[in-house]
């Protein structure tokens, strides 16, 4: 009995093999082509991207260059230089003008402040001399004891004069400021200064150079020695670093009027 074979013949196998090899080759070609196309596109794309980027950068640089001085013609440059020089000169002039104004203003304000300072100083001096301000400073304190009540008002007038000759700047007797309008009066051993009445013990506070003031009183034949000859009168002079002299209580001018145009 002949066995029927269902297997394909040898020729069929060879044919199938050839076909599959061909298909494989074809697919390899397709893959290879698409791969090389991708590389082509990628490299070209990178190149073009670079070109686009450079194009913009170059465009911007060229725009700057067009506006730069290097791009200008000689005539234009000459005109620009001329304009800048003229502007420069004008600005220099302006600087000088402004500096002069600044100096003038500075001088003016300096003058004004100097005048004000001097006026303030003078005002202060006037207030001290007229006794409107309480003052303090170095000076002497003269203590006079008169238990027998023998002193007269003129003794105090001489005392004030002698102290004034010794450079006294402010004087107070028993706390009463001696000013330009102060007068000394009294009777029966009492002394009236302005409206205050004192007796027996007097303390005279004086602001000024301590040595000069003391010297003015202690000179041979001066007030100190003269007063000491009176019965019972004792004079003590002590120098002090800080002597306080009060202000005049009030200044009421009833009759005196200021003369406007002396």
């Amino acid at each position: 009995m002949k066995v029927q074979s269902h297997l394909p013949s040898r020729e069929t196998f060879v044919h199938l093999k050839d076909a599959s090899v061909k298909g494989l080759h074809a697919s390899e070609r397709v893959v290879g082509r698409s791969f090389s196309e991708a590389r082509l596109t990628a490299s070209l794309a990178v190149g073009l991207m670079l070109v686009g980027f450079l194009l913009v950068a170059q465009w911007r640089g060229a725009a700057t260059f067009t506006h730069s001085l290097e791009r200008q013609s000689d005539q234009n440059l000459a005109i620009i230089i001329q304009e800048i020089a003229a502007e420069n000169n004008a600005l220099r002039g302006e600087i000088v003008r402004l500096q002069m104004r600044l100096m003038e203003t500075g001088q003016e304000s300096e003058d004004r402040s100097r005048v004000l300072n001097e006026a303030a100083k003078e005002m202060q001096a006037v207030r001290v001399v007229s006794g409107l301000d309480a003052v303090s400073g170095p000076g002497i304190i003269v203590t006079i004891r008169d238990p027998e009540r023998v002193l007269l008002p003129q003794d105090f007038v001489r005392l004030v004069h002698d102290l004034g000759a010794g450079g006294a700047e402010a004087i107070a007797v028993n706390g009463t400021r001696v000013s330009a309008t102060t007068g000394f009066a009294g009777f029966d051993g009492t002394i009236r200064i302005n409206d205050d009445v004192f007796s027996r013990t007097y303390e005279v506070s004086v602001v000024g150079h301590p040595d000069n003031l003391a010297q003015a009183l202690e000179l041979p034949g001066g007030l100190s020695s003269t007063l000491s000859t009176f019965p019972g009168v004792g004079v003590g002079i002590s120098r002090a670093e800080e002597v306080r002299v009060p202000a005049v209580l009030q200044h009421d001018f009833e009759y005196a009027q200021k003369v406007e145009n002396p």
Binding site: L44, A45, V46, L48, M49, L50, V51, G52, F53, L54, L55, V56, A57, Q58, R60, G61, A62, T64, F65, S68, E70
Partner: peptide, 19 residues
């Protein structure tokens, strides 16, 4: 698209070529 991308990048980065 690549060219456009390059131009856009240039515009965004504000790069300028020195004179």
């Amino acid at each position: 698209l690549a060219l456009a991308l390059g131009i856009t990048l240039g515009l965004l980065t504000n790069v300028s070529v020195p004179l």
